[in-house]
Design a protein around this nucleic acid. Sequence first.
DNA 1: AAGTGGTCTAGACCACTGA
DNA 2: CAGTGGTCTAGACCACTTT
Lengths: 233, 233
Amino acid sequence: MSSARSHTWQDIQERIRRKIEDRTWSPGDLIPGEVALAEQFGCARTTVNRALRELAATGVIDRKRKAGTRVAMNKSRRVTAEIPVIRAQVEALEKEYRFELLENRSLVPPAYILDTLRLKADHKALHIRSVHYADDKPFIYEDRWINTRTITQIKKIDLTHTSANEWLVENVPFTCGEFVVVACMPGKRVVKAMQLSSKEPVLESRRTTWIGQKSVTTVALYYQPDFQIRFDI
Amino acid sequence: MSSARSHTWQDIQERIRRKIEDRTWSPGDLIPGEVALAEQFGCARTTVNRALRELAATGVIDRKRKAGTRVAMNKSRRVTAEIPVIRAQVEALEKEYRFELLENRSLVPPAYILDTLRLKADHKALHIRSVHYADDKPFIYEDRWINTRTITQIKKIDLTHTSANEWLVENVPFTCGEFVVVACMPGKRVVKAMQLSSKEPVLESRRTTWIGQKSVTTVALYYQPDFQIRFDI
DNA sequence: AAGTGGTCTAGACCACTGA
DNA sequence: CAGTGGTCTAGACCACTTT
């Protein structure tokens, strides 16, 4: 009957996965409770719990107290990607990294930036524009606004030597935020700085980060036209 | 000294997080071992382990046996997104879903598709093109190739009533795969089917999935020009 | 060889939520 | 209220690496 009965949570998870793939348990079905499964698999309930917890985290099953565990109906997949510091991204391609600061001054941002950073109409913010190069070819154009009411220390930093990207990542405590990707036609500034033909669409990623309720920074990155963002499923 | 000493792993995690944010432990530093932390926080080692495990999973710390736990240098962030079935995506917008099948036939794919699906030069595959609508407005254009050597059952399915997207998600067991996002200018077919002005760039997402070593399907989705893919950090 | 993280167990109590 | 998942504990053994 039962072959190799390893009791690792990975193994238990694999067995449960298979039952779902087999359609022993179909989407929407209630599957046995943790105690039952523990007995069935001959392991501790804790181990079953670990296996199920991870399956729930990736959206394979839905769990509710008292209601039990069901195979997820909507197999929406959760994908993940690594978003590294730009320097690391360039160095991972085995190219030499360098960046150029185009702008670094404090001014009142346009309305949609004020809104994003939740600043009032007359508040200033630090506007930073720079180009990041890989082996002397423009790689990413960065257009960033920093809320200097939250990040007061940045006024003292020499951003011509350390990029804002890098400084923030290394010095600003963990934040939550959002990250949005769109396709766009680059504006004149981007076309020029990135040495593009003006007809090529590029990926634009917008990121805004927070410390608790306080906004930190919002940044738009424009990549080379052929650039891909890659995810694992 | 110690205030509210909850021993939930979330609490322990929060305390550790804070020590990193405080720069009590700076990037690159070795932090105390699990036993030490357990004693320090007055909880079981298992609880510390759980807290640290989750921090490691999101890239905040790096852990190695014997070497110990270090605060991550490269705070590369892992972002996650939900990729739902197209129907669910439309219905989440509270719009009515419908789709139209444009093509559904078996033929020898172009070379790059053969390569992606790891098929031989004379092998046929099922080519499916369709448009997915939200309230009668084109929402996504789908260009899919299915490896009928892996998914033999699909020949029997009526794909005019159930979209391939939906059928695959609900019927093909779990796969691994890759997911790539690029910006592109849509081709003629896409422009026409999506009723676009031909100058607008759109997001293209390419996904290829596998069952073990066997390729299942590769699909390119073209979204409406203003469409955003959103991630949580 | 030794130290550190990784995991399993058995038992216990808690927290949520459906009936 | 009762059943299910969520978590904590204490102790044990294992597996991986660095020394």
